[in-house]
Design a protein around this nucleic acid. Structure first.
Length: 174
DNA sequence: GCAGTGATCATA
DNA sequence: ATGATCACTGCC
């Protein structure tokens, strides 16, 4: 039986960040630059669920940086962290609800900064659609992920987020 | 353990 | 305008 490779569209992303995050494990992040294409399986993500989530950038309200999170689901949210590392997120949920999923590991890339460096992702992708037109998109290649393969833990690096720092919004595929 | 690095946000 | 902070990484 042939496996169909399907590009994930807006309907996939227009759901709560926790649901999208869990479902992204086992999907493939695909990067095309010039004619070279590279696909890596997503193995670690974190959900940032809305303006009330004190770890989520949406807590600042609408600003130049967060505006993309208020837009339609399925666009990239890319920002610079610590002046050196690009963080890749995909916008989720409904318009006017700022939520996103952070990509922390995929393929051989372990760590969100190493992932973006390895795939040559920077601010030029910010606010662009997760679609072939932007050169970065996500495919379902038929990998089935069982619930027992998913570990949930607290998110990394959000110690400032009061009780939200403990929420098990990080998903790891084992 | 902690420095590097610069955008972002709050305050003024 | 300034200053604190930061969804990280690599080296001590």
């Amino acid at each position: 039986m042939a496996t169909i490779s399907q590009v994930l569209g807006q309907a996939f992303f227009a759901r709560p960040a926790l649901t999208v995050g869990r479902d992204l494990l086992g999907k493939y992040l695909v990067r095309r630059r010039r004619s070279a294409e590279r696909a890596v399986m997503i193995s670690e993500v974190e959900a940032y669920i809305g303006p009330h989530d004190l770890a989520c950038h949406g807590r600042f309200g609408r600003t130049a940086r967060t505006e993309v999170m208020y837009g339609p689901a399925g666009r990239w949210y890319v920002y610079l962290c610590y002046g050196m590392h690009w963080m890749l997120n995909v916008v989720t949920d409904q318009v006017d609800w700022p939520a996103a999923v952070l990509f922390r590991a995929a393929g051989d890339f372990s760590g969100p900064g190493k992932l973006t460096k390895g795939l040559s992702i920077d601010r030029r992708l910010n606010a662009q659609p997760a679609a072939e037109s932007s050169g970065l998109w996500i495919e379902d290649r038929g990998i089935v992920v069982r619930r027992s393969q998913i570990q949930r833990t607290a998110r990394i690096g959000v110690d400032y987020a009061e009780h939200w720092k403990e929420k098990p919004y990080r998903f790891v595929l084992s």
